[in-house]
Nucleic acid binder design. Structure first.
Lengths: 356, 356
DNA sequence: TAGCCTGGTCGA
DNA sequence: TAGCCTGGTCGA
């Protein structure tokens, strides 16, 4: 099975043996046909699926395909196993809900799945899963080849995967409770629309908040692991940047220090036009914006350049041919941020262990 | 029937005769009881409902309660009629969908309701409905006592009402198509979650885009009706403010003009932290930000003051005791914007008709 | 692809 | 109540 991805141009597809697609939706197939192996001359049925389809997402989840993935060849047996596991989890949830309905305890089930673990707890869980999966132990950016890729993978792959489990449990129960208050599916869709909309809007907004928190938590964990001095959410005259290095005191108007003895680090998982929200006031220090967004245009990068904002991106994104980052001088990788901008240019931001 | 609202403190409730609430959800009732009329000594059952409930929204829709509403006494017969109409519309949609299912033409129905009229068309429809309802003919801000209230009412009440009809048609069909691909409601909720989520996320994002467009369209119509010279979406060195007055040429670096011969007008329905996105570059002109947000904090207003951004709000919001606007010098009403900031201070921004 | 946020959630 | 945007839609 071959899985191709081209994230830069939004085309992203998978050639996959047809027989593996039982249970996946034909709606996401772009085309199907027969493939001849040029070496063995064997013939295989296949389908090509759209990357924006749910099936593509399912495939990525099942095969543990990470955010920086480009293309690879996989062992089909992996997919069968992972799919089966997913099916079991859904089956179990369905059984649990149906049992609650029979027992008249749907309200109690709703209450028990209604509160997700706080973002910090899921973040912790994700880091643990990452360490276990990679056989690593810590997030010290000076010990890693690609600290940015690690943060992206932990937050967008491991943590999101964990989060989706909790989300499905909570929201599915809420949806069932709403659907059941109507006579049939059509009535539920029409008369239940406002209630369903409220549930999914809440879910969507929760995701947005959690995404931001997650990224900040892992960034904080990495700064901590790297013995970098920093303060979170320090209030500086009305503004509240995500991180100030080394601390709030250094950013206060009266502070006597050089330009290289402090910096501001903001974080946004994706930018859109929202990067313009970051502090325009200058505190006699550089401003860095960390992101895992792989879709920032050259135009936007130029504007950030003009505004004297340096973008910090995962190593794989910085090197990616699809992203516009490789050519831009004000875009650096997380590794470069820690090695050059912190350790080399601003050594006073490090606690003694890493003094160079 | 009495309907009270206190938007500032988020409490907002309705006392309504109990017998009118057939068909509304008991889940939104805060309390019920018996009311004695002090004059006639008549006794009535009543319920108090939560303003954040769907029923409150239904009530506001049914009674055509506008965004600037505070409190009033209504004729119950109005509610019965409006409710009946709403019910008929839902019934009709349900019947249409069920018929399509029977005929196997759900796909065709989906295609026919899948494309909403473009924002500009709905905006036009909303203005026509407003003119008809109020017996007015145009949006000339110099002819109106409260032009800001008019824009708010047209966009947030009339147009949103119209939009919701189109939205329900499209989304309900999409939801039915998804629900029907599963065996029962529980399976649909669990296995159909990603598909349902996609539908509602799309709806939510469409709303966000449409809300912004709507506000801009009505603002443009008002500028036009007031014979104010303006240009939309002019590109000024990478930035693209919503409106420049009188035109792009006046904002270009080489333009020879006084400070009062141009201005920038941005528009955001609600602000959150997003007001920080507006152009910080100065083009030797004032910057105004029009909004219908009734929830901007004093803290945020102070920051805007510092950033030299003037907020333009509907007249009822500027006067409202619940909003923080009345005390702030950099918050003006739409009326003041047109009368003072444009006609009085910057008469060259007007075409001849309104020259003062 | 820039700009929209008919925006709720989460934690200072 | 400030800041988040595990973000799609719409029209330059």
């Amino acid at each position: 099975m071959r899985h191709y991805s081209n994230k830069g141009s939004e085309t992203h597809f998978t050639v996959i043996p047809h027989e593996l697609f039982r249970g996946l939706s034909p709606a996401s197939w772009l085309l199907g046909g027969r493939l001849v192996d040029p070496v063995t001359d064997a013939r295989h049925w296949f389908v090509v699926i759209n990357s924006t389809s749910q099936d593509a997402e399912l495939l990525e989840t099942a095969l543990d395909i990470s955010a920086e993935f480009h293309f690879d060849i996989f062992d089909p047996s992996q997919l069968l196993t992972a799919s089966a596991l997913d099916r079991d989890a859904s089956d179990e949830l369905i059984a649990r809900i149906n049992e609650a309905i029979l027992n008249g305890t749907l309200d109690r089930l709703l209450a028990s799945v209604g509160n997700l673990p706080p973002p910090a707890a899921i973040a912790e869980e994700a880091r643990a899963a990452y360490f276990k999966s990679t056989g690593t132990r810590g997030l010290d950016p000076f010990d890693m080849v690609a600290p940015g890729d690690a943060v992206m993978r932990i937050s967008r792959d491991f943590e999101f995967q964990i989060f989706k489990g909790y989300e499905l449990r909570r929201r599915a129960v809420e949806i069932v409770a709403t659907l059941r208050s109507h006579a049939d599916m059509t009535s539920a869709a029409v008369r239940g629309f406002p209630d369903l909309d409220r549930i999914f809007l809440s879910a969507s907004q929760q995701r947005k908040n959690r995404a931001g928190r997650s990224f900040e938590y892992h960034l904080a964990a990495m700064l901590q692991a790297g013995s970098v001095k920093f303060e979170e959410q320090a209030i500086l005259g009305g503004r509240r940047p995500d991180f100030v290095l080394p601390d709030k005191a250094a950013m206060l108007p009266g502070a006597e220090r050089g330009y290289l003895e402090a910096l501001i680090l903001s974080a946004k998982t994706t930018l859109r036009e929202r990067w313009k929200q970051i502090t325009h006031e200058r505190f006699n220090s550089a401003i860095f914006l960390a992101t895992v967004d792989d879709r920032v245009s050259k135009q936007a990068l130029d504007e950030m350049q003009t505004a004297d904002i340096a973008l910090v991106v995962p190593e794989s994104l910085k090197a990616s041919k699809e992203a516009a980052y490789s050519g831009h001088s004000n875009v650096i990788s997380f590794k470069e941020f820690f090695e050059t901008e912190v350790a080399e240019k601003r050594p006073t931001l490090l606690k003694l262990r890493h003094f160079v």
